[in-house]
Amino acid sequence: MTAILQADHVHHTFTAANGQTIIALEDVSLALSPGTFTALIGPSGCGKSTLLRILAGLVKPTSGQVQFGGLPLHRPQRQISMIFQKDNLMPWRTVYENIELPLQLAGVSKNEREQRVARLLYVTGLLGFENQFPAELSGGMAQRVAIARGLVNEPDVLLMDEPFGALDALTREQMGQELLRIWSTTQATVVMVTHSISEAVFLADRVLVMSPRPGHFIREVTVPFTRPRSIELLTDSTFTLLEAQIRAAIH
């Protein structure tokens, strides 16, 4: 299978305000096959967000190339959608209008927008809250709105930067399961950054482990479990073995 999104020998260097140069990414190569779920895990500050921004076309890497559908990626594309660590909702738009935004920007007709938003309200369990403003939502609900907004234009690639970072452990588990359920209704290729090893193993087809800065991949773990996956998997012996492997690679 040819990769839908691919990074070749990507390096990225930041120049801090005091003139100091920070090497964030060092020789990162990555190929994403269509329809796969990849988890990205690594210590804080190792360049995960930077890599995601590069894959989204938001940041041009210092050197190296990113290809999307076989073509060089120079700027953000509508078929690549990004869910940020913070929900990044517009406080003046209702839940409905926030989810609608990407469709509006893409010039989708009002009728079609209505149908697609309604479907996502349904799958994210937000029905009945569409006229609420973000300030009236719980953290988990706001995050679900952000996820719905990321999915509404049916992207080919979904990049998620710790989408559950702000949630408590319980909600996080629930949201993970919901995400899998929602994802199973799409054909999207997913890259998800997370700090949680069990979350990575539970959700992904493969887990990529990054080194401390300058970030590069030090380990790739393939997750063999079939889908749909249930919560009992968390206590499975193979599952805990994979977890231990990843933990060992990080430390």
């Binding site: 953000p76 509508r78 940020f84 517009m90 935004l101 920007l105």
Partner: peptide, 9 residues
């Protein structure tokens, strides 16, 4: 929000 808008092309 600016970055979110840019990400949405």
């Amino acid at each position: 929000l600016r970055e979110m808008m840019r990400a949405n092309a």
